[in-house]
Structure formats: structure tokens, C-alpha cells
């Protein structure tokens, strides 16, 4: 549970450097922002703007070089890699552009995978995974492998996997990048519904304005800094 009165995500002066052959590359140059529980945020920016780096930091896949990041009041930079893994498992769900399903596992086993790392028994895992697949409308396809499913279906399996441990935040990195317009619309509608009906916090990285239009708030990155942070109401105004 988030500490009362504090935002779910609190970022202050966040910086991230990468050491490359050509020297130190500053991917993030001081980012400060808050995201409260239940928000639906779109992060935009050109490639190289730092949005993916920011996303990796928020998703606890990486640690910042400087600055602080508090998730549910916990200082992420102080956590061990095991604690980060546990946090990713319990609090965070990922949806990727390339779906990132394990090709040799069935849809059911893919969805059940995070539950295995949560320490559930095989039967519990399967029951819960099946329920998740039904929720994304793929209850009938649980024994298909990803290659036997369409792109839209694969992304729904990935969403079911992200939801499996009932996290509070879902990070979606270009989730519609590999999908056609109609399928994209269905996926985005599902995300909106999750956010509206279950209060799941959604952070979406995209470079498409119409996809970003589903979100209530738009944050634009450029050269490692936030250059725009507006709500839909402000955009409309």
C-alpha cells in the first residue's frame, strides 16, 4: 500500500549516465515528477530522448546514477537486486512492443510464469492464469503457443501475464507498435477499462499521438529532460 498522502511514484532530480566507447552519455539529465495511484500517463518523445531509460528506471529494471526514485514510499536505489525482483514481481506488470512471450510455453504457462516466481503452487498458478486469460478473452486459447496466436492475441496474453500477480502499475512500452489499427484500438480500450474500472496505474510509452490520446496525462521527453507535462483537460483547453 502506498503511504497515505504520498504519490505512488515520486521522482526527484533523476539522472542516468551510460558509459559508452565514446565517453559518458547522459540519458537522463534531472527529471522530477510524481505519478499518483490510478493515473493513466503517456510518455512521449523521439528515440534517444530518454523515455525508454526513464521507463526502465521506473520499472525497477535499472538503478539511477543520481537522484531519487520512491515507489510506494520505498527508495528504490537502496534496494538489493533481489528486492527489486520481488518488487517487479508483485507491484509491476510489463507489456512490451515485441510481446516478449516465451515461444516454447503455452499461453497458460506464460501467464503463470510470474506466479511461479511469486512462490505459488502449480495448481494455484494454473487456476489464476486461466482466470486471467479468460479476462482478456483468451480462455479458449490457453493451450496454444504464442506462434499459434495472432499478434493481437499474443499481446493480450502478455497483458494477462502482466496482470497475473495483480500489480498496481502496468508499464507498457509501445504496446501497439506491432499491431494494426483495429487491434491497437482493442488493446487500448482494454487498457482504459483496466484503468477506469480497477484503478490500475498505467504508464505508457509511445510515439503515436492518437495512442497517447487514451491517457489522461502526457509527458514529453527531449534530450533527457521533461519538456512537456500536461493533462488531457489542459490539452483540450
Amino acid at each position: 500500500m502506498a503511504t497515505p498522502g504520498r504519490p505512488l511514484i515520486e521522482v526527484l532530480n533523476l539522472e542516468k549516465d551510460y558509459v559508452t566507447g565514446a565517453g559518458v552519455f547522459q540519458a537522463l539529465r534531472g527529471v522530477s515528477l510524481n505519478i499518483t495511484e490510478g493515473e493513466f500517463v503517456a510518455i512521449m518523445g523521439a528515440s534517444g530522448s530518454g523515455k525508454s531509460t526513464f521507463m526502465n528506471l521506473l520499472g525497477c529494471l535499472d538503478r539511477p546514477s543520481r537522484g531519487s526514485y520512491h515507489l510506494s514510499g520505498q527508495d528504490v536505489s537502496r534496494l538489493s537486486s533481489d528486492q527489486l525482483a520481488a518488487l517487479r514481481n508483485r507491484e509491476i506488470g510489463f507489456v512490451f512492443q515485441g510481446f516478449n512471450l516465451l515461444p516454447k510455453l503455452t499461453a497458460l504457462d506464460n501467464v503463470a510464469l510470474p506466479l511461479m516466481y511469486a512462490g505459488m503452487t502449480r495448481d494455484e498458478r494454473r487456476r489464476q492464469a486461466q482466470a486471467m486469460l479468460e479476462r482478456v478473452g483468451l480462455g479458449e486459447r490457453s493451450h496454444h503457443t504464442p506462434l499459434q496466436l495472432s499478434g493481437g492475441q499474443q499481446q493480450r496474453v502478455a497483458i494477462a501475464r502482466a496482470l497475473a500477480t495483480r500489480p498496481r502499475i502496468i508499464f507498457a512500452d509501445e504496446p501497439t507498435g506491432n499491431l494494426d489499427t483495429e487491434t491497437s484500438r482493442q488493446v487500448m480500450d482494454f487498457f482504459s477499462q483496466l484503468n477506469r474500472e480497477e484503478g490500475i496505474t498505467l504508464v505508457l510509452v509511445t510515439h503515436e499521438a492518437d495512442i497517447a490520446g487514451y491517457a489522461q496525462r502526457r509527458i514529453r521527453f527531449q534530450d533527457g529532460r521533461v519538456v512537456e507535462d500536461v493533462t488531457r483537460a489542459e490539452v483540450a483547453a
Binding site: 533481489d82 525482483a85 517487479r88 510464469l113 516466481y117
Partner: peptide, 16 residues
């Protein structure tokens, strides 16, 4: 490698 990355992203600890 990619499978390992996916497993880590969804909560596998290093020791897992």
C-alpha cells in the same frame, strides 16, 4: 538471453 531477460522482468531473482 532474451528468455532470461523476460524472466527477470517478471520477477525472477538472480538466484532463481
Amino acid at each position: 538471453t532474451r528468455e532470461i531477460g523476460i524472466r527477470m522482468a517478471i520477477g525472477a531473482r538472480r538466484r532463481d
